[in-house]
Design a protein around this nucleic acid. Structure first.
Length: 119
DNA sequence: CATATGACGACAA
DNA sequence: ATTGTCGCCATAT
């Protein structure tokens, strides 16, 4: 696979994170079909071109912490964007239990029939 | 080909 | 909660 294609896969996975939810780097990597590729997601985010439409702020560490250094420009920008969509950021962290994106659950809510295919 | 570098993650102290 | 170590893996040099 070409490097550009991989970047696109990762960016697409991030575009699927719904407003008000967050996903970890590793989670996005798996969805993009790159197991253990958390670092590749970080790489992909650094390659975002100007004018992109990728909700980069919805990607945080598995621990719930914002990846940027506390107090830095990007750190503040990310906290602000998350707050803007009602995601609580306390001391640089987000409660993953509460805000972690669950694709499977989304499926159930959007297409209930998909969960009944065993009847 | 050899090393260094990360917007990471799991785990042990 | 923090910090350090180690594993991981595409890129960069």
């Amino acid at each position: 696979m070409g490097k550009r294609a991989r970047l696109e896969l990762i960016w697409d996975a991030i575009r699927d994170i719904p407003r008000g939810s967050v996903a970890s780097y590793g989670q996005i990597a798996e969805i993009a079909g790159i197991p253990r590729g958390a670092r590749q997601v970080g790489y992909a985010l650094r390659q975002l071109p100007d004018g992109h439409d990728v909700p980069w702020h919805r990607v945080i560490q598995a621990s719930g912490k914002i990846a940027f250094e506390k107090g830095s420009r990007p750190y503040k920008e990310q906290s602000k964007r998350l707050m803007m969509e009602d995601v609580a950021v306390i001391a640089g962290r987000v409660d993953m239990q509460k805000y972690r994106w669950q694709p499977d659950l989304d499926e159930l809510l959007w297409k209930p029939s998909a969960a009944w295919d065993d009847e």
